[in-house]
């Protein structure tokens, strides 16, 4: 009897599809509760903005990097710009 129960238990366990395990069982409507995905870095994002130029036959455009959304004022000389230059 005992071995039979063990076997039955095993059969039941085997019946559980590996893919079905680890399901989220607690739902909160409208909220994703699965595993978090890695987000891409800003550097990759910049690369991707450049790379799309390959999909056009024109010359590669220079995309404005995300960190440069505001144009430097022209006052700063640290990056090599001409001091005092105004646009």
């Amino acid at each position: 009897m005992k071995p039979l129960a063990v076997m039955l238990g095993l059969v039941l366990l085997v019946g559980c599809n590996a893919d079905e395990r680890g399901h989220v069982v607690c739902l909160e409507k409208g909220v994703y509760k699965g595993k978090a995905d890695t987000q891409i870095s800003d550097a990759t994002r910049t690369d991707l903005r450049q790379r799309i130029a390959l999909q056009s036959e024109g010359p590669a455009r220079v995309a404005t990097p995300p960190g440069m959304a505001v144009m430097p004022s022209g006052e700063a000389a640290a990056t090599g710009r001409i001091a005092g230059q105004k646009f």
Partner: peptide
């Protein structure tokens, strides 16, 4: 024919 474009929406629009 480079008909299908994919990428940053702004860049796609520009092209």
């Amino acid at each position: 024919t480079k008909a299908l474009l994919a990428g940053d929406g702004d860049m796609v629009s520009t092209i």
